[in-house]
Amino acid sequence: MNFFVDALPLYLNGARYTLLITVGGCALAFAIAMAVGILGSTRSAALRALASVYVEVFRGVAALVLMFWLFYAMPLLTGYRLEPVFAAILALGLNIGAYGAENVRGAIKAVPRSQYEATVALNLSWTQRMRLVVLPQAWAQMLPTFGNLVIELMKGSAVVSLIAVSDITFVAQQLRTFTGETVLAFAAALVTYFVIAQVFVALMRLAERSANRRLGRIPARPRRRAKPAGAAAKGGAA
């Protein structure tokens, strides 16, 4: 019990870094996902090609490799060294953003064609069509996968411990070294991650429910966990 009392402040401090990187990475990933996903759903073949090159390349490289490249290799190229936290946010954002872009593209494609036709009949421009009709409707469809990606990014943030950012994983490593309590050190880290994940899951579920309510779809009964967290990211390689 003593171990936990002493270690709790350390884990909480580590959780601050984990959360910082998760939130920062999510913001970046979200911006990329929207921009690249919308590009990928345009009629221009050139823009679509651009979007799919981005998606394939950044899904193809693991966030860890990308982070190492940004942290170790890029300074040799540019002479400018990134802050470790920033390198991590960039790597995770670029990587998860590629998965998010596919999600956005798919959700846009899933908006019924008849809705698109109604916007033509009302003479809306492309921008108006996207902003007023397509994206608000696609939003509800995007959310479940976005939820999985948030969890995926949060888990992925553990790699920052390898470039000496003192996140939860780093704290666990330190405690293992200094106290020798291997099992407790890592078990506490796992539980902390799990708790954070459950909070994100709950928040995303609230967001999903409100999005569905706005579209007039009131779920008859609370949905069971539809997909495993992160399945879309991990399984979304295709």
Binding site: K155, A158, T169, L190, Y193, F194, R225, P228, A229
Partner: peptide, 23 residues
Amino acid sequence: VMEFIRCTPLLVQLFFVFYVLPG
């Protein structure tokens, strides 16, 4: 158990297996 595994980082799980099992 599966939910727990899916919601926690693979890296920490690797550390767990690597450091704990020899113990």
